[in-house]
């Protein structure tokens, strides 16, 4: 099990991409190493592993829940207190749409907020090795590794041109 976090710091993107290639070639499992940047580089620019996400499920489930609740609420109210307005049926969809729309949107927004917390892995309680220079343009290549392979990972980062190596447990 990975118990060490090693960060290689680069000033240029090219050697950072080389480090990512080097780690893959050295047999480190995809997903155990990643690139940290202060700016969003185009996806795949470093040859990084892009994990699958389930972000769209949250608003979709939220919207379904909100929609269903609103239908039950509006239909239930009208059935419980039947009142004919303008000769229209008791269950008039057009009268229900306004409330249904609001509740659907509200639930979708709330579910999206919840989804952010899960999918972004935030708050990140154990961020591993990190350096403040990343938010001013430096590029970090971070790897979670077992102690037995730490030396090898460090060597790959240095070979690629890491200007500095940082450790965190």
């Amino acid at each position: 099990m990975a118990d060490r976090s090693i960060l290689g710091l680069f000033q240029e993107a090219e050697p950072a991409a080389d480090a990512m290639d080097g780690l893959a070639q050295a047999g480190f499992e995809a997903g155990t190493f990643d690139v940290l940047t202060g700016t969003p580089y185009p996806e795949g620019a470093f040859g990084e592993h892009v994990p699958q996400h389930r972000l769209f499920r949250f608003p979709a489930f939220g919207a379904i829940i909100g929609f269903t609740t609103a239908i039950l609420l509006t239909a239930g109210t009208q059935i419980a207190f039947p009142m004919v307005t303008g000769g229209k049926p008791i269950l008039s969809l057009f009268a229900m749409i306004i409330i249904v729309y609001e509740m659907t949107m509200l639930s979708a927004v709330i579910a999206t907020v919840i989804g952010i917390i899960f999918e972004s892995r935030l708050p990140n309680m154990n961020p591993g090795a990190y350096d403040e220079r990343i938010t001013e343009g430096w590029i970090g290549v971070v790897i979670s590794v077992e102690s037995t392979r730490a030396q090898e990972a460090e060597s790959v980062l240095k070979t690629a041109g890491a200007l500095e190596i940082k450790h965190a447990s």
Binding site: D34, P40, H53, V109, S120, L122, P127
Partner: peptide, 24 residues
């Protein structure tokens, strides 16, 4: 910042979240 470090998954979900909240 909630532990933001600029990892691949964080940037990827950030882009999507901006799109989603914008649409909402």
């Amino acid at each position: 910042a909630r532990g933001w470090v600029g990892s691949t998954v964080q940037w990827r979900t950030l882009r999507m979240r901006i799109g989603m909240f914008g649409t909402f």
